[in-house]
Amino acid sequence: MIWIDTILQGVLLGGLYALFAAGLSLVFGIMRLVNLAHGDLIVLAAFVILIIMSSLGLGPFMAALIAAPIMFAVGWALQTYVLNRVLGDDILPPLLVTFGLSVVIQNGLLEVFSADSQKLSAGSIEAQSLTLGPVAVGVMPLLTLVMAVVVILALNYLFFHTALGRAFRATSDDAVTAGLMGVRPDNIFAIATGLAMVVATISALFLGIRANFDPSIGPARLLYAFEAVIIGGLGSLWGTLVGGIIIGIAQALGAAINPAWQILAGHLAFVLILLFRPRGLFPRAND
């Protein structure tokens, strides 16, 4: 019975990781950009929500609604003025620029907000739990997983059933030919990063309600998210969900054996899967 509970907790944790990873997967899939600052941008979004909550006296969900367009603008500007300038065949420049951004954002937040732990308080919902047969699950963790599924459904709809999604896929296939069709790749990339930041805001909301956060936690969360994206396979959003859940279960199982092994178990699961599937579980056919 304890094992069912552990695995269930792992699945729910995986929901959070999948939420972190969904925005990353979008950007990675469209422009092959490894954004090493994504984790710190999620933390930034959490602080933006926090500021809105305290200055306007709103709850976290309402505050996130206001934070989302702000973060979209941040992502759009970041892509337009910085990242588009370094995108190309060579992965080194974008990697190093986003690494620099990661350090700047993290230390900027540290400078402004100090290293104190923060939390987005959502009231009584945090403590509520549901009894599902033999096990009890928290409402918030369940809501996080549901949100991850909703976000992925929404992104998939956007990707496969809208004109914008069509332009995303065409640009991802062949940006030069897409330009011949009147698609502006720079613009497409800016919108994609803006959307990724909206997803980052949603992740920040659930991260901040479930656990304490401080300016330094970005990179570790980013790593789990990257593991989820890579395990899932480039450009497959459902793969990203599966990847997140695998990391979550591995961490939960590791922690059940020995608390010190939680993170290690997640990393080992990543290595093990890539050992047998170097392109992830659900790679795109034409990459």
Binding site: R166, R169, A170, D173, D174, G182, V183
Partner: peptide, 16 residues
């Protein structure tokens, strides 16, 4: 575009 269906390949021609 390999990721696009025949119809989508045609539609993207009218994107702009």
């Amino acid at each position: 575009f390999p990721s696009l269906s025949v119809e989508e390949n045609l539609l993207i021609g009218a994107h702009a």
